[in-house]
């Protein structure tokens, strides 16, 4: 399937998004001037280490930001509206109907006291308010079957705790797909799963994408997962978008020193036993005391003096292919 690499009319356009949280040590700048398009029908991978702000980006789109939010600037454009300018209730109404979410821990997202069927029937209310309960139940069974729950017609009467972790994640995927969302946010969907189960979920997502019209935002620290599933990749470091573009370009020919260093940390199948593994020296900066200029400069092996002067802009590196990096040296 060929998809346009650069979407003139993205589903969601994030513009100059900055998010800070109030902490006892002062404001923590969790996202700084992030600009990113989520193209229609594409799987966009958001890669970064803990503290890079990748989950906050998803929370900003769905407006599920924590109470200690101290700054929310920029714009998130969706269907001609700026979600950040809308009242919270208006964005809340989009959750469950236009935006759906899958989390790392499906048990936390399923209500333990209701049967799975009840929950899958109820969540269709926003999408199909007129459909009968029987129709909704039939759709739920069909969707559970599609995501690979054996004997779905019987098991739909079970409670969440009666399913294994992998099965619960399948139920979450079914729940998300039943909403027929424009945007599906999957936040570390396989992190809590065993490798063979992770493999099954990856194969499932890969299979379902063909019948799914929406956009998927896949948040993961696993380069393997992202490289297998994503069309586009965006790399976050300490709240800054350092590189974005088509997956093959970003992961195959990374241009930003951080992306390169991160990819080098992945242990390859050909690793020599007890050889020294690649690492990134130093620690990620404290979000309450970000360094001036490029946030990666203090750890960057190629940094020059001017890297510390100004925050580098995201600049195209391959003409109009959509691959861009925020580094003075490219």
């Amino acid at each position: 399937m060929t998809r346009p690499t650069q979407d003139a009319d993205p589903l969601i356009a994030i513009r100059d998004l900055s998010v800070s949280f109030a902490t006892s040590a002062g404001p923590a700048e969790v996202l700084r001037n992030v600009t990113l398009d989520l193209g229609r029908g594409r799987i966009v991978g958001l890669v970064g280490e803990s503290g890079s702000g990748k989950s906050t980006l998803a929370s900003a789109i769905t407006r599920l930001l924590p109470a200690n939010l101290s700054r929310l600037d920029g714009g998130i454009l969706y269907e001609g509206r700026d979600l950040l300018a809308e009242p919270e209730a208006a964005v809340a109404a989009l959750r469950g109907s236009r935006f759906a979410m899958i989390f790392q821990d499906p048990m936390g997202a399923l209500n333990p006291v209701f049967r799975v069927g009840t929950q899958l029937v109820d969540l269709q209310r926003a999408k199909a308010p007129k459909a009968s309960r029987r129709d909704r139940m039939a759709r739920a069974v069909a969707m559970l079957t599609r995501v690979g729950i054996p004997d779905a017609a019987r098991r739909i009467r079970d409670y969440p705790h009666q399913f294994s972790g992998g099965m619960r994640q399948r139920i979450m995927i079914a729940a998300a797909l039943l909403c027929e969302p424009d945007l599906l946010i999957a936040d570390e969907p396989t992190t809590a799963l065993d490798p063979t189960i992770e493999g099954q979920i990856v194969a499932l997502i890969d299979e379902l994408r063909h019948g799914f019209q929406g956009t998927i935002l896949l948040i993961s620290h696993s380069l393997g997962l992202v490289s297998h599933l994503c069309d586009d990749v965006a790399v976050l470091y300490a709240g800054a978008l350092v590189e974005r573009g088509p997956a093959a370009a970003v992961l195959g020919a990374p241009r930003h020193p951080y992306t390169r260093a991160l990819l080098a940390c992945e242990i390859g199948a050909d690793v020599v036993r007890r050889a020294t593994l690649a690492t990134i020296p130093g620690d990620a900066p404290d979000p309450t005391r970000l360094p001036p200029g490029c946030v990666f400069a203090p750890r960057c092996s190629q940094a020059i003096d001017s890297c510390r002067d100004a925050v580098p802009e995201l600049r195209p590196v391959d003409g109009d292919g959509g691959h861009a990096a925020a580094c003075l040296l490219v």
């Binding site: 490798p195 063979t196 992770e198 493999g199 990856v202 890969d206 696993s222 380069l223 393997g224 997962l225 490289s227 297998h228 599933l229 997956a247 093959a248 992961l251 195959g252 990819l263 992945e266 199948a269």
Partner: peptide, 10 residues
């Protein structure tokens, strides 16, 4: 099972 980082390969 676990998806390996293998750019270019699906």
């Amino acid at each position: 099972a676990a998806p390996r980082f293998d750019p270019g390969k699906r």
